[in-house]
Amino acid sequence: MTFEPRITAFVCNWCTYAGADLTGTSRLSYAPNIRIVKLPCTGRIDPLFVLKAFEGGADAVLISGCHPGDCHYASGNYHARRRWSLFRKLLAFTGIDENRVFFSWVSAAEGQKFANLVNKVTEQVRAAGPFGERNLARRRL
């Protein structure tokens, strides 16, 4: 059986979730490998969410929210950006590299960008292969 990546996406309600809605209303298609978990803001996304996703079987995690300056809550995405810029390096240092954690700004108007993003991430993870049962961050089932 071919490997189908499982991608968990954490997105904000105001930009990326709406952007993904637009992808739908525009009938643009993308790979069915993504599962979206909606949050009010990227500022809400705790690093624990990412670890939990990997633990539970995700092959990659996508985090997406409003472009800088567009945050519905004024600065939630800036808080998120700073958090991730350090956390992703810590993940990479401990073996979870940039083929596993993706970040993007997708506005409510960027339906096409969302479709392209999902396709690209899916392809990249497909090429990288399964997250790996042997990785310590993964629960042994």
Binding site: P68, R81, W84
Partner: peptide, 14 residues
């Protein structure tokens, strides 16, 4: 973690 600047690096966010 808990403050921010508009100038923070965002090059990793595509």
């Amino acid at each position: 973690i808990g403050s921010w600047s508009a100038e923070d690096d965002g090059s990793f966010i595509r």
